[in-house]
Design a protein around this nucleic acid. Structure first.
Lengths: 154, 154
DNA sequence: CCTAATTAATCAGGGCACTGAGTATTTCTG
DNA sequence: CAGAAATACTCAGTGCCCTGATTAATTAGG
């Protein structure tokens, strides 16, 4: 009877999905380190010495947000941040030993959590789930700096 | 070569999907009214006089967040908030005329935006997209107040 | 060379999202 | 009916997420 059922709104669904993930992460992975923080750690373990902007690009965080996340990880002693001697604008980042240990520990828990999170889906459905979300997200992302503005130019 | 590809992490994908939606909403629907605010308005147009907690439940916002969203909508003059004379704990909410007008306008734009957002998917795929996300979100939600704790009780 | 454009990072400001603690009101129960 | 439990809301605190403006450093053009 509702005028417009929210469950037919992809945006509402996307938000609920992320909330659900947040909750499960908190319960099963860590109450200290958040999922975005883990993503940053994950990137830096694979590629130590990246600058802040590039890490942000890798994990999909804008310049402001990545600065905050980095500052929290740094405050926790999980990464080091030093000015690039070659280019004084850049901050180069690398995980500390503690950061690497934390990353290793969380990787195990994250894998367990993902199992629980995806438990309602069959193996085939999981593949489709990833594919569909990726395609929608990529397409919308591609509209960010469009050749032609979104609103009809006229 | 990356140690753990983020694109295989459902949480990362969920976050990217929501970001993509946020961007498109901002570009195509409104820079003033956000998607959660619209969801609240949508609920109240369908069911005027609901109390704050129930609205939060309907749109999937916790007690603190719904309070903030309501306060912003109220500040913008889009809804009225009055104490329930029958039960002094409750705040009863109903949209103002301005709120109803705004809701109507945004409903049109939201429909357009959803078309663009889902454009990468075929009609069949959209159905699957909704179904899979809903199932995952519902299942995780169901774990909130579990009969048995998430971590093995032992 | 020196100025102009570009680039990396920071800061201010607004909004969403959660937890834990506190207040007021109502309801349940002895 | 009085005290206890439950309920609706508020408040403080943390973290994610974006935009627009600013600052510092580098690169490109004349």
């Amino acid at each position: 009877m509702a005028a417009a059922d929210l469950t037919t709104h992809p945006g509402h669904l996307a938000r609920r999905l992320q909330q659900a993930h947040y909750l499960l992460w908190n319960a099963m992975v860590s109450e200290e380190i958040t999922s975005p923080q883990y993503a940053v750690l994950n990137t830096l373990v694979a590629e130590p010495g990246l600058d802040q902007r590039t890490v942000g690009e890798r994990v999909g965080l804008d310049r402001s947000t990545i600065a905050e996340v980095i500052s929290r990880l740094s405050r926790r002693g999980l990464l080091d941040k030093v000015r690039d001697p070659q280019d004084g604008r850049r901050s180069l980042l690398r995980p500390t030993d503690e950061g690497v240990r934390t990353h290793r520990k969380l990787t195990v828990r994250t894998a367990r959590m993902n199992q629980v999170f995806l438990a309602p889906l069959t193996a085939d459905e999981r593949t489709v789930f990833f594919d569909l979300i990726r395609r929608v997200a990529d397409a919308a992302e591609g509209l960010r700096n469009p050749e032609e503005p979104l609103a009809a130019p006229r």
